[in-house]
């Protein structure tokens, strides 16, 4: 599996570390429902069949966090962008 790192170019997947769902957002820790929100943020994940945004870390390359779009049914990598610049 290859991942097109926006900084390093197309690289083998074993250079990267997988984290998971990139659509979750760290909740406001000051909100009254912070306990429940953080429980969801830390523990609860959807398991979609199809294109999915995921965090991958390019530890053996530029050491940047990426948002990789991957089809969970086929493992096809549809794109990758720097986290924070992914528009998400």
């Amino acid at each position: 599996m290859l991942i097109p790192c926006p900084y390093c170019g197309v690289r083998d997947a074993r250079e990267f570390t997988y984290l998971g769902d990139a659509t979750v957002r760290r909740p406001d820790p000051a909100a009254p429902d912070a306990a429940e929100a953080f429980h969801a943020y830390v523990n609860l994940r959807d398991n979609p069949a199809g294109p999915h945004s995921e965090h991958w870390y390019h530890g053996a390359g530029c050491r940047r966090w990426l948002v990789v779009t991957r089809d969970t049914r086929t493992h096809a990598v549809l794109g990758a962008a720097f986290a924070g610049e992914a528009g998400a």
Binding site: L19, H55, G59, R64, A83, G84, E85
Partner: peptide, 16 residues
């Protein structure tokens, strides 16, 4: 390495 990765996550993802 794990702490570096954690700090990078903070800067790249949580608080760019």
């Amino acid at each position: 390495a794990k702490v570096y990765q954690h700090l990078a996550f903070c800067l790249d993802v949580l608080w760019p």
